[in-house]
Computed example of a mutant assay.
Amino acid sequence: MDLVRKTILLYLMSLSLSTHASIDIIRTGHQQFAKDINQEYNFRILEAALKITEPEFGAYKIMVYGDGSIPKKRALNQILKKDGFFNVVLVTTQPEWEEKAIPIRIPIRMGLLSYRLLLVHKDNADKFSQLNTIEALKPISVGLRKSWSTWEVMQEQGFNVVNSYTYNSLFAMLEKKRFDYIPRGVYEVFEEVEFQSQANPNIMIEPHIVMVLPTPYYAFVSPHAPRIAKRLNAGLEMMMEKGIIRDMLELHYGYAIEQAKVNSRTVIQVENKTLSDETPLDKKHYWLDLFSESSNL
């Protein structure tokens, strides 16, 4: 059975279940290409939030659609439809998502994506060795996908942004020196370098810089599913208060945080001016501070 037919069948099954049983049906999916460990983390967080709320909200079922090729714009369009393929999407926040969907403003990665290392071409690594300010970094060309939240943030602040239309073409373009660097989250970058090593052998992790760009990663819920939004908000809040999300981050990404060694790097802060005024930055227990000894996972 091909992927489209399988997706439609699962979708119809979910509608049937939600019609004939008292059960919360969560329809989610792989919106963009990602390594399996990242999709696994998303699924486990979602599952844990639903499980912890069973005493209050009852039974649930998670149905996952897609193969990783659905772009965020299409995912948003689906989540806004009453009978769209998705009613829950886990993704980095952007203004349009917060305006149109229901954001659950509990950062499920505790801001870990805010810490980014730079992928560079080996021939150009020396270019970054003496950089220590945002002003020095802005003229150097950065490769980004236009659908990424970082694209809008860096474009508005005057960075020299070069567009890429697909995830894989980013690495091919860096290999060909079409731009100078790609900022990637500390939990993404090590596996990406390994995965790309055969096709793009000259890509390396720049050893001196960590870019800090505040990037919340939320669950977004369809406006047609307020009960699910209430349930996820309750579940994720309990998980945050009990330290469960922190424990899950350690399980999935502790090795990458240790490898990144951010305390030995030059910090370049990039303000995220697109963040909503409702971003819970005042709730310190929601966010990791990788520069503080007390924040070690």
Rank of each mutant, 00 (worst) to 15 (best):
M1E: 08
L3R: 13
V4R: 13
K6D: 07
I8G: 03
L9V: 14
M13A: 10
S14N: 08
S16K: 06
S16R: 02
I23E: 11
I26F: 12
I26L: 15
T28I: 14
G29E: 10
Q32W: 14
N38F: 07
F43N: 12
F43S: 10
R44G: 01
R44F: 06
I45R: 08
A48N: 09
A48E: 15
T53I: 07
F57P: 00
Y60L: 08
K61M: 11
G68F: 02
S69V: 01
P71S: 09
K72E: 10
A75E: 03
N77Y: 07
D83Q: 15
G84M: 05
F85W: 10
F85K: 06
N87T: 12
L90W: 04
Q94A: 14
W97M: 12
W97F: 14
A101C: 06
A101K: 05
R105E: 05
L118Q: 00
H121V: 09
H121A: 02
N124C: 02
K138Q: 11
I140W: 03
V142H: 02
V142W: 01
G143D: 08
L144P: 01
R145Y: 00
R145H: 00
S147Y: 01
T150H: 13
E152S: 13
E152Q: 13
V153W: 04
F159D: 12
N160S: 15
V161R: 09
V162N: 04
V162K: 12
T166V: 12
T166W: 09
T166H: 08
T166Y: 08
A172D: 08
M173W: 01
D180M: 06
E188I: 05
F190V: 02
E194S: 14
S197L: 03
P201T: 10
I203Y: 07
E206S: 05
P207Q: 07
P207G: 07
I209P: 01
M211F: 00
L213R: 07
P214Q: 06
T215R: 05
A219Q: 05
H224E: 12
A225E: 14
P226T: 03
R227Y: 11
R227V: 11
I228H: 11
I228P: 02
K230M: 07
N233W: 01
N233R: 13
A234K: 07
A234V: 02
M240C: 03
E241L: 11
K242F: 00
K242D: 10
I245Q: 02
M248W: 09
Y255M: 08
A256N: 10
I257Q: 03
Q259L: 15
A260F: 04
K261T: 01
K261G: 02
N263L: 12
S264M: 09
S264A: 14
V267K: 15
E271N: 13
E271F: 03
K273M: 05
D282H: 14
K283E: 15
K283Y: 11
K284R: 09
Y286M: 11
W287A: 08
D289S: 09
N296W: 11
